[in-house]
Write a protein that binds this DNA or RNA. Structure first.
Lengths: 227, 227
DNA sequence: CAAATTTGTTCGCTAAGCCTAACATTTGAG
DNA sequence: CTCAAATGTTAGGCTTAGCGAACAAATTTG
């Protein structure tokens, strides 16, 4: 019962756990039923039912109207799913020549179908990568996520020169837009200014030197570290 | 309705169609409900229901107690699934270093999850292969299966020297046994004798030169051509 | 702080895929 | 050619994962 592999969970359960974990990866506030419903594309009643079932299996703790928290077992499954997702994305880009903005949806489906053996073989073939094409850390086979530091571009002080560490892969259309602009993990840029009430952040990128204006959703999706 | 991609079918429907097609790939007799049930690991009643639904969708023709035949639309979907399966097997062996006897079950799951885009990229990466690791022909993207000639080893005349064209991938354990014996697609051998009532076929293989006795199930699983 | 709004839960229903049990048809052995 | 055995079908139930409607709780607002 303790050693149940993640592949024994239903795809729906895998999605729930991964989403709960992902929600707390970059912000501390616990996720809510309605946010989960919106992200999963289902109704809140469906999520409410699902959470109750996960609680019955000991994968989350949840009292009615209370907060949703992963148990240790639930977290282990969630991290295993995140590892699958990020290794798949890396594999699709590095081995099959996908663009880094095209891999999210494909990985979303495949992560429910691949075996642990296949994941291990991809990991080996890729040389045990630690970051996926969006810059997100790939948890190890032992389940330890290697958290990189970083802040959202929207919170970076004006005047600083920074490197992009990660770009949220939640919105493929936004990723395509970033690609057009030449913004990708490891791109360096200087934060020129934040214009508060317009919610616009201006950055300067080199080669070719240019200024780019980013709205709030864009500058929240990009995470940077000082260089 | 006509251009529905194979990915719109349920996994169960995909399995049914592929099995019906596969059953007639190497023998002309139409498949029966009970054989399908046994191969799919479900009860005959389940298959009977499923066939009825496929008939309703115009993918097979079937009157109660009558024979089961693919329509053109059903055949197109079936061939698309076979293409997926065989390309996946080839990819797992050639790119990820799987043994040719380990890939069947993995492909069986993945074939329901991969997108057409992924299949095309794998096909390109592999250089548009025409045979899978077991020697089975890989249908083209246009759906035309390239049928190779060949007969079952059990039916090959004694004294002939032949090359293995294909080995049925139905039984992974048998494949592992063949690997131990050094029997694989393209292996050459000479049929020494058939002993009819013992149902044993003896063959001689070179490098290292040795004689191998094969029972009926084994010599039915191996297909050969004269060289 | 009361009322209105938002958020979460429960309940009854649906569809797919599977099951068993009962029944119908076909096959093939004597 | 008959009838028992084998094969196929139907009917009724179960589980999962969805839904909408009705209701309960919590939060926000006036």
């Amino acid at each position: 019962m303790d050693v149940m592999p993640v592949s024994d969970l239903s795809p729906a359960a895998q999605d729930y756990l991964k989403l709960i974990w992902s929600a707390t990866e970059w912000s501390p506030a616990p996720i809510t039923v309605s946010v989960m419903a919106e992200r999963l594309g289902v109704r809140p009643s469906t999520v409410s039912d699902g959470i109750k079932k996960l609680a019955g299996q000991g994968l989350v703790t949840h009292a009615p109207y209370g907060s949703i928290e992963l148990t240790d077992a639930g977290r282990a499954h969630a991290v295993a799913m995140v590892r699958r997702h990020r290794l798949l994305e890396t594999f699709l880009v590095d081995v099959l020549g996908y663009g880094w903005d095209e891999v999210h949806d494909e990985a979303e489906v495949l992560e429910h179908a691949v075996s642990d053996t296949l994941i291990d073989r991809m990991d080996r073939k890729l040389g045990h990568p630690t970051r996926d094409p969006h810059g997100d850390p790939i948890p190890g086979a032992d389940g330890r996520p290697s958290m990189p530091k970083g802040t959202q571009l929207s919170a970076a002080a004006a005047g600083n020169t920074v490197a992009i560490t990660r770009i949220s892969d939640a919105d493929p259309q936004m990723l395509r837009y970033f690609t057009e602009l030449g913004l990708a993990p490891d791109t360096r840029l200087t934060v020129t200014e934040h214009r508060p009430y317009a919610d616009v952040t201006t950055v300067r990128v080199h080669e070719p030197e240019r200024d780019i204006d980013l709205g709030a959703s864009a500058s929240d999706a990009i995470w940077v570290v000082a260089v």
